[in-house]
Design a protein around this nucleic acid. Structure first.
Lengths: 226, 226
DNA sequence: GTATCGTTCAAACGTTCGTTTGAACTGGAA
DNA sequence: TTCCAGTTCAAACGAACGTTTGAACGATAC
């Protein structure tokens, strides 16, 4: 028997982690349906059957990919808001926005871990055609969403609730699209941003843009009838 | 022979149009890879081989779906800008934004034609994983993009070009996400908008939000170093 | 040693995919 | 009528898909 066929021993959860990491990257590059189990297991360097053994099915793997990162990230979002409130300073709209946006960009900065892959994947998934995936993301976001909505309501007491919902929706879109479209900026100009040290600058740009949009004057409300 | 097997006679391009309409709707609902030729041809009520006969391949069909609507729409965008300039009035940022956004929402309003389906599909496609599709969309958008970029440059002479590119990028994201996520608003609150008579109101809301973001003060520029 | 449990493996399962084929059919020109 | 270009049709193609199977393996407990 050749020595090369020796089975390698792996620490516990090694295989699970390798699969999740590979899935994160491939899903980001080719989408869920565009990524086959054979590509995925080849990249993770595990057996084809490993995904079904450890996760049950491809759909369950997709869910696991989201849960691994989304729960901690939204937990950190809520904690960031709590931390600001704990100082006693008043919550300005800009501070709220920065807390929300910053948590995404923090993940992009750690290029070592797959956080960057996940953030891009996440940006794409907001407009995912598959209904179960959208429902899952909605569930995972709900706690943080409620928390931020009420924070904005307190910071902008004069804003009609319906208008606030729309503006949060716009904010969400801007963030999601910006995260997803690393190369789509070229659509406008040939300027592809260096993503490393630009994360901080991007946070400033995004926050300034979103804070201005969120607090824009309410001139159009008078038209509302229905 | 039963009368029901009679072959129906169709006007020229009937089949092509039926396929394009069905593709628009199914691609919007299930994505490109999630839509099979069998579903598609069944919905269009044409033979399975019809797509390959009329378009050559599934990929060519996808391209045709975009070309049919995108070229006229971006043409209308440029024309809208020309029309404003023809009046001699100065081009304000808000007017430019309204010209761009309005053309998308105009298409949503005609619920009869498949324009609404296409707009949602388009919103999703900006973050499409498939590289050829992103390249195609980039090509189709390029003329309008150049035109609007230079219009903004004239309307905002004090804005650094790099900053303008980013803010246009943010605008694009907001619009794209808003169009794509008809039901994703529920992610924030249980408010699902009535889409018909809200199109005008949505245009006002979007324009106000985007105009404020685009013209936000430039406080963060001082940080820039690289 | 041996029984046990969790894991990995190569091979195969049945299904569905996009595409191709060659014949059948239609409407109009020769 | 005969012919022909354009189109539609049922059937099949090979490839790739997600998943399942049952044996082999390594480590631990008895």
């Amino acid at each position: 028997m050749p020595a090369s066929t020796l089975r390698t021993v792996k620490p516990p959860h090694e295989t699970r982690t390798r699969i999740l990491d590979a899935a994160e990257e491939l899903f980001m590059q080719h989408g869920f349906e565009g990524t086959s189990m054979r590509q995925l297991t080849a990249k993770a360097d595990v057996n084809l059957a490993a995904v079904n053994y450890h996760f049950g099915s491809k759909d369950a793997l997709i869910e696991a990919v989201f849960r691994r990162r989304l729960d901690p990230m939204n937990g950190a979002r809520i904690a960031a808001l709590d931390a600001i409130e704990a100082t006693g300073r008043p919550l300005t709209p800009e501070a709220i926005i920065r807390a929300f946006v910053g948590e995404s960009l923090r993940m992009i900065e750690d290029a070592k871990g797959g956080g960057r892959n996940f953030i891009r994947l996440l940006g794409r998934s907001y407009t995912e055609p598959s209904k179960p995936i959208r429902v899952l993301i909605g569930q995972l976001y709900e706690p943080a969403m409620e928390r931020y909505k009420s924070a904005f309501e307190r910071a902008l007491p004069q804003m009609p609730p319906e208008e606030l919902v729309w503006r949060m929706h716009f904010m969400f879109g801007t963030l999601s699209y910006t995260l997803a479209a690393t190369d789509a900026v070229q659509l406008i100009a040939g300027c592809k941003p260096e993503d490393r040290h630009d994360a901080r600058l991007l946070e400033d740009r995004l926050t300034a843009f979103l804070a201005a949009g969120l607090t824009a004057p309410l001139k159009h409300v008078v038209r509302k009838a229905a």
